[in-house]
Each structure stands twice: as C-alpha cells, then as structure tokens.
C-alpha cells in the first residue's frame, strides 16, 4: 500500500430525518402565521369572552344561577360548526396550498412523499389540536370561576379528549383530501359537503345511533362528571382510528400522485 495515497474525501453526512423535521417546523410556523388560523382563534376567543361575560353578568347582577357546564355546552354548540369549518380549511390547505413551483422546490429535494405528507399532517394536527386544547382549557377554567362551578376536572378532560379526537379525524381527512384533490377550492367544497352533509344526515338518526346534536347535548352531563370512562375511551378510540385510516389513505394516495 502506498503510504502517500490521498485519503478519500469524507462521504457527505445525511440525516434521513432532517427533511421531515424541516417541513414539520416550517409548516408549524406557516400555520400559526396564516390569517385563517388567526381568524379562527380570534372568533373563538371573542365568542367565548362575549358569551361568558354576558352569562357572568346575569349570574352576578341578576342573581340567576348560570351553570358552567350548561353554558360551556351551549358555547361549544354555537362555535362548533365554525371551528369545524376553520379547522378543515386549515387542514386541507396543508398540502394543497403548496402547489406549483413552491411544491416543486420542496419535493424535488431529498424528501420522500411519505415524509412530506407525514410532516404536514403532524404539523397541522399539533397546531390545531394544541390551539383547541388551550382554548378549551381557558374556557373551562374561566367559566368554572365566573359561573356556577359544576364542571369536574375529569369531566372537562373527558369532554376535551373526545372533542380533540373528533378534530383529529377531521384534520387527518382534511389533509388527505387536500393532498389528493387537484385544487384547494374543489377540495374544500367536497370536504365541507361531506362533513356538514354527514352531520346534517346523522342528526336525523333515532336514539341508538350516533347523532352529533345529541352528543353535544350530552356534553353538559359529561362535564359534570356523569360519564362512563370506557365509553369515552371507545369514542375517542373510534375517532382516532378514523383519523389513522384517513392518514393512511393520504399517505398511499399522495405517494402515487403527480404534483
């Protein structure tokens, strides 16, 4: 062996997880900075503060007892559809909002479609569920102190967990539809039709079948701590399964789709 042989240049060091975290981190930032996200938070805060102060006034000044669990349920019913609309729009625009040469400039680099889709899905899920969890915690705490304190910790956690599981399913399917649709407008139109159409149709179903309206009405007793933990876990598990199924469809479909 020739002692003077030049050493081979070191092989470039690649971290295979870096592309995932690059898209994840960038999407976290872009989601928080988007006007749709800010508008959703603003609408929710204004509704919660306005409604809470109004009921607080009745509770304190008029002397009529206002139950925190009841009015949290009413608030949820009022802003629920708006929340679903905003959350689905934000989820859907995760992939579909980055089309054309912006998507080219990301997907033509060293990132696989799987990593890209997972990063988008995880980022949107984290931001939206995180924001909802914070809003829910603030509302429950504030209403507990301002109104008649009949919300239990366990009931509040159970109700929030179920709502988060529902939102997780909406986000997963939203990201998937956004990834597979050929345009944001057509995607959101189809998604809203499916989502609100399903809610509308399910509300006609008789008692043993799941109805969103009845579920929101039952929220009051759940918040008071009257719930079966097994049923709550089952419900949350069901929606999480729906979320995972949506993500799996998106993962497979997007890895075969032309961008």
């Amino acid at each position: 062996m020739d002692a003077t042989t030049t050493a081979a240049p070191p092989a470039p060091r690649f971290n295979p997880l870096l592309p995932y975290f690059a898209v994840f981190r960038t999407d976290l930032r872009l989601t928080v900075q988007s006007w749709v996200f800010r508008l959703w938070v603003l609408v929710s805060v204004v509704a919660a503060v306005g409604y809470g102060l109004y009921k607080f006034g009745i509770h304190r000044e008029v002397g009529l007892v206002q139950s925190a669990s009841e009015h949290t349920g009413v608030l949820l019913r009022s802003v629920g559809l708006v929340t679903l609309a905003f959350v689905s729009l934000l989820a859907l625009s995760g992939v579909s909002g980055e089309r054309g040469s912006v998507a080219d400039s990301v997907l033509s680099r060293g990132i696989s479609r799987h990593q890209y889709f997972l990063a988008k899905w995880h980022a949107r899920t984290l931001v939206l569920l995180g924001a909802f969890a914070v809003l829910a915690a603030v509302v429950l705490t504030a209403y507990h102190f301002l109104l008649e304190p009949d919300v239990t910790l366990g009931g509040g956690v159970a109700a929030t967990l179920v709502a988060l599981a529902v939102l997780a399913a909406v986000i997963a399917w939203g990201v998937t539809v956004g990834a597979l649709a050929n345009g944001t407008v057509i995607g959101i139109t189809l998604f809203w039709l499916a989502l609100f159409g399903a809610i509308f149709l399910l509300s006609f179903l008789p008692d043993p079948f799941p109805s969103p309206v009845r579920a929101v009405t039952q929220m009051r007793s759940v918040l008071r701590g009257n719930y079966d933990p097994t049923e709550v876990a089952k419900l949350a598990g069901l929606f999480l399964t729906v979320a995972l199924a949506g993500a799996a469809v998106g993962l497979v479909g997007y890895s075969r789709k032309d961008v």
Binding site: P12, A22, T26, R109
Partner: peptide, 10 residues
C-alpha cells in the same frame, strides 16, 4: 437552510 435540511444535510 431549509433547502439544506430538505436534503438531510447536517
């Protein structure tokens, strides 16, 4: 920096 991370560059 974003492009570099997309290529997995440390």
């Amino acid at each position: 920096d974003y492009m570099g991370r997309l290529f997995g560059m440390t």
